[in-house]
Amino acid sequence: MKRSTLIILAFLCSFPYFGFAQDSSPEVIKSKTYRFLGESWQYQKFSDRSKTFETEIESQNWNDTTIIRKSSKYDDNIVTDLGINLWNPSDQTPAVKPWGSWNVELKYLGQYKASKNFHLNTSIGVSWFNYKLEDRDLLAIRTPEGIAWEEFTDGIGTKSKISASYANLTFVPTLVSNNEKLSLGFGAYAGLRLGGRGKLVYDDADGKSFKEFEKVNMYAQNYRYGLRAEIGVGDVNLYVNYDLNNFFIEDKGPEVQAISFGISFR
């Protein structure tokens, strides 16, 4: 009996202690609210040195979420120019046959959309200039004095041409219509020569075909620079290039400028 009474008394004496322990929560000594990621975050520091961050996230209906995509101001593409080469003035050189005097350029095009109606087009690429002579028996020869044009007599000529290749950098500011179906651009370019040669294809008396090459630069300039115009209608893009410097090195060939025009494929 005495033992039971002692246990009960001990339990009753300890009851106020448990009630006091539950009410002794640490005191907030510092509190501050922050805005982060569109939400309010509350920082609290307590007397027992503990810290908390709390926020309330509103419930959202993800089925009704609208995703807004902002279009990039920069675009890029691989572009191929295919056109025809001519010389100006044409009376300073042997006549050139347009069909076969191909101008081909493969380039990487970067387009910066400064505004809806104004774009800046910059490209870097490699181009090949071919000039096919109208007189197929006329042979272009490199001499110490300069380029010479001689009549070929050892067979029947079927093709005669000279060619040169350049690495180019082009910059064309362009105006664009609201629906982007019409564009008009004017700019400039500069190039550094990579190679060049002359070529003659002929048939002998037995009808066998042969080729002769001048595997050296035919005195084409080591650099080129000029103006470029572009016009786009729908998916069709046309271009015109006009070199401002002579095609041939000074005193080594005729004083003529290269003109190229054609279509760009994107």
Rank of each mutant, 00 (worst) to 15 (best):
I8Y: 01
I8A: 11
A10K: 06
C13P: 05
S14K: 09
P16A: 05
Y17V: 12
S25R: 14
F36W: 14
F36P: 13
F36D: 14
E39F: 11
W41K: 13
W41I: 15
D48P: 08
E54P: 08
S59K: 15
K70Y: 12
S71M: 08
K73Q: 11
Y74A: 11
Y74C: 07
I78V: 05
T80E: 06
L82H: 03
G83D: 07
L86W: 04
P89E: 02
T93C: 05
P94L: 08
A95P: 07
K97H: 10
G100D: 00
W102P: 02
L106V: 07
L109T: 00
G110L: 13
Q111S: 08
Y112P: 02
K113Y: 03
F118T: 01
N121A: 04
T122G: 02
T122K: 02
I124H: 01
I124D: 06
S127V: 03
W128D: 05
W128L: 07
F129L: 13
Y131M: 06
Y131E: 05
Y131N: 07
L133W: 01
L133V: 00
L139Y: 11
G146E: 09
E150Q: 12
F152G: 02
F152Y: 10
T153N: 09
D154Y: 12
N168Y: 04
T170F: 04
V172R: 00
V176K: 00
K181M: 03
F186W: 02
G187N: 00
Y189I: 00
Y189T: 00
G195K: 10
K199E: 07
D203N: 14
D206G: 10
D206L: 12
G207T: 06
G207H: 10
K208D: 15
M218H: 12
Y219N: 13
Y219K: 12
A220M: 09
Y223I: 11
R228E: 15
N237E: 10
L238I: 02
Y239L: 01
N241P: 01
D251Y: 14
K252G: 13
K252S: 14
G253R: 07
I259K: 09
S264M: 02
